[in-house]
Amino acid sequence: MNPKNCTLYSGGLKGAETVFGETAEKYNVNEVIYTFDGHKLSREKNIRILTEEELERGDISMELASRMMHRTYYETDKIRKVLQTIFHMVNSGHQVFVVGSIQEDGSVKGGTGWAVQLAKIFNRPLHVFDQPQEKWFTWKGSNWQEDHPLIKYDTFVGSGTRYLSDAGRAAIEQLFAESFS
């Protein structure tokens, strides 16, 4: 893989997304940060502000999102826009990498879990670094299997928790090092 031919899609938020972006920059991987007007980012390079019309293309019922994620999302404009932005990230990237916590029901904790659900729906190669276990897992069929993933497609998503651990940071850096060495 030539990193100059690859593009990372993320949301530019604090934690995992910032480290994905910084690491992509270090390896000369192109980066696109999807966001919306008024959204506070931690990483402000290569920003693509989605229009209201574009955001609407990623719209979903908050009730359906809540059911799929096994948690309650309240109808707020900001949460809706965040979920719509995640839709564009996952729709743009062929492979999805997430840092977070896999729950007992197979979902991933927090808003990060929406990227995971969409990756499953869109049938994208999906990999989660589970911070509590400090291991990578890949979604295969209908369950998580321990794995050692590599970036294998020229478009990929990097998302995850705002509360990135040292192990999570190291996992992202190792992913890039092994994929582009």
Rank of each mutant, 00 (worst) to 15 (best):
R71P: 02
R169C: 09
G111I: 06
E134P: 01
A167L: 05
R48C: 15
I33R: 09
G93T: 11
A177R: 13
G110A: 09
I33G: 09
H70V: 08
G58H: 02
F87K: 05
T76L: 02
A119L: 01
E53Y: 10
F87N: 09
F129E: 03
N2V: 07
E17D: 15
F176T: 10
T72A: 01
A177W: 00
A177E: 12
W114A: 08
Q103D: 11
E56R: 14
F20G: 04
L126G: 02
K109E: 13
F137M: 01
V19I: 15
E63R: 15
S66L: 06
S101L: 10
S179P: 12
T35F: 07
Q103P: 03
L118A: 01
M62A: 02
E173A: 08
K45W: 02
L118N: 04
S159Q: 12
N5I: 04
F122N: 05
R169Q: 13
E56A: 13
W114D: 05
I79P: 00
C6D: 08
I172A: 07
G106I: 08
F97S: 05
A167Y: 05
M68F: 11
I47P: 01
A170G: 07
L126Q: 02
G58L: 00
K14V: 08
G141P: 07
I121C: 01
L8W: 02
Q131N: 10
Q95W: 08
S61C: 06
M68H: 12
F20S: 04
V19E: 14
D77H: 11
Q145N: 12
I60D: 09
F180P: 06
K152A: 08
H148A: 13
F137H: 11
S42P: 03
G141H: 04
M69Q: 14
